[in-house]
Computed example of a mutant assay.
Amino acid sequence: MDGDRTHVVRDENLDEGERRHLKGRGIRPGLLYGALYFVATATFLLAVSVESLPYLRFCFVGNLLPKSMLTPDVATVVVLVTMWGVHFVRRFAEVLFLQSYHRKVAPFVAIMASLLYVVSGFWIGWSLNFFLGYSAPALWILIPAMLVFAVGEVGNCLSHVHLERDAVNGTRASPIHAVVSMSALFHFISCPHYLFEIVTWLGFAMAAFTLPAFLFLATNVVMLLARARRRHLQWREDANSRGDLARYHPSRKAIIPFVF
């Protein structure tokens, strides 16, 4: 899941009341998200490698595809483990070295996010456990899924770079409180980083084809669609209140170009 953030102009452009509001109470997002990404990776690796975990029936673990569409090669499971690791190592590096956050995370939100990452990481790893009989999809399914995953990863990373660049470059000359990049897909949607996050997990779910992988995808879709809509409306309202709606592009959508 993509760490939520608000991109604002630099602190020197804010009055004292805004500074106090941005500091607020709660947990530092960079610290929280870094810890969550580490935990998600650790619980996943634990569950995917332990031989003594019980096998659960009713599709709770194991591939949902028929045996004729599977490959017993353990190397394909290694591919899935690598995909999971690539995503969370990248996100871990981004929150520590790239992204800046201006608002803290409420304790309740931090607790719920922690539960989501712990449960999802362990359950998805459990469902991919080779010792419990998991077999990955055949290569004609796995390779397209890997390409979808790669598109999501690259797009998500580039979107974060664009957002951070524009947040850093915000100056007094720009009256918009929420500085939104005008690069690449930002011309069409406010939150391409959320869109590419969904693409990433779609690719992973296609590659894994397990129930928890698809449930994790569905959870991210619901949360990121709602978050994108909220951010989009906030940024539009902010731009409109400052008389700079034209710069924001009134025809821009929240997360799906031309649609939503």
Rank of each mutant, 00 (worst) to 15 (best):
P257C: 09
I124K: 01
Y33M: 03
H249R: 15
Y101K: 08
N169Q: 10
L132M: 05
T171L: 03
A246V: 13
F258W: 13
V61N: 14
A226T: 08
V39W: 02
A113R: 06
L163V: 09
R57F: 14
A246M: 14
R227Y: 09
L158H: 12
R20N: 02
S181G: 03
V78F: 12
Y33L: 03
F38I: 03
Y117R: 02
V95T: 04
C157R: 11
V89G: 12
F92Y: 09
R227A: 10
R103M: 15
T6R: 14
I189H: 02
L215Y: 10
P54Y: 02
P192Y: 09
P107W: 11
C157Q: 13
R10Q: 15
A167G: 12
E237M: 08
G121T: 00
G26S: 08
A218P: 04
K253R: 14
S190I: 11
V61W: 10
R236C: 10
C59I: 03
R5D: 14
L245H: 12
I143L: 06
F88C: 02
A207H: 04
W126F: 05
H21N: 11
G34F: 04
I27Y: 07
T41C: 02
N169R: 12
H7S: 13
S52E: 03
S49A: 01
G152Q: 05
L116E: 00
H187N: 15
V39G: 00
F131S: 11
N13C: 11
R165H: 13
G155E: 04
L31Y: 04
A213V: 01
A167S: 13
R236T: 09
H193L: 12
V118F: 05
C59S: 10
Q234H: 09
D4Y: 15
A213H: 06
S49T: 07
R229L: 06
R230E: 11
R227L: 08
S135M: 06
Q234L: 07
L225P: 04
V77K: 06
Y117H: 07
S52A: 08
M112I: 07
D4G: 14
G30T: 07
A184I: 04
I124R: 01
V168H: 11
Q99I: 10
R227G: 07
F92A: 00
F60L: 13
G34I: 05
Q99R: 15
P137M: 03
Y117D: 00
W123Y: 07
I198A: 00
V86T: 07
T200Y: 04
R19L: 06
A178C: 12
